[in-house]
């Protein structure tokens, strides 16, 4: 992803009020990490497993810091149990920032990624998690702000899937 796009993404998160990010690093969106770490308004927490990222974000969210979980698409599979019991059943607002690997517009797609990518949206839909797919920078900040408003309104996770220009 171009540096300007990473900066806009992080700026959009900040403007929308996100102040806590737990994450397991991945390749496609990784330019956002140093930007968030350099900004004291974000508390950025590295973890060992996306399920853990979800549970830590849930605690942060219920403790008063609007939280996001940054992960690769595979993290939705790994984190699905905690997304269900903490995100849906307990009802905890959190934003999922997902590198939508294996999607048609994923510029790094290979046979390694395509199958998990194909099943990602059905997984989110089976969990009844609202999502938005980002292919380019069109209305980026407005969409992030709308997603954060949605997560607060329904007190559940909302997912943003980044592909296309975000995967360059």
């Amino acid at each position: 992803m171009k540096p300007e796009l990473a900066a806009r993404m992080v700026g959009g998160l900040k403007e929308a009020g996100i102040s806590f990010v737990s994450y397991l690093p991945e390749t496609r969106l990784s330019q956002i990490l140093p930007l968030m770490r350099e900004d004291p308004s974000f508390m950025v927490v590295p973890v060992a497993n996306e399920s853990e990222a979800v549970s830590i974000a849930a605690g942060a969210s219920l403790g008063g810091r609007p939280a996001a979980v940054y992960m690769e698409g595979s993290g939705v599979y790994v984190g699905s149990y905690n997304l269900l019991v903490l995100g849906k059943r307990l009802g905890t607002p959190m934003l999922l920032l997902v590198a939508y690997y294996g999607s048609i517009l994923d510029k790094r797609n290979t046979f390694l990624y395509a199958f998990p990518g194909i099943h990602l949206i059905p997984i989110l839909e089976s969990l009844d998690i609202q999502y938005e797919v980002f292919k380019d920078d069109d209305s980026l900040e407005d969409k992030i702000k709308g997603a954060v408003k949605m997560m607060h309104a329904i007190k559940q996770p909302v997912a943003l899937l980044f592909t296309g220009a975000f995967t360059e």
Binding site: S51, G59, A60, N82, L86
Partner: peptide, 18 residues
């Protein structure tokens, strides 16, 4: 939280922000 494998993570998150 009534879930196996979730309380410690939630506790970590709470302790960090409070």
């Amino acid at each position: 939280v009534a879930a196996m494998g979730a309380a410690l993570g939630v506790g970590i998150g709470l302790s960090l922000v409070l």
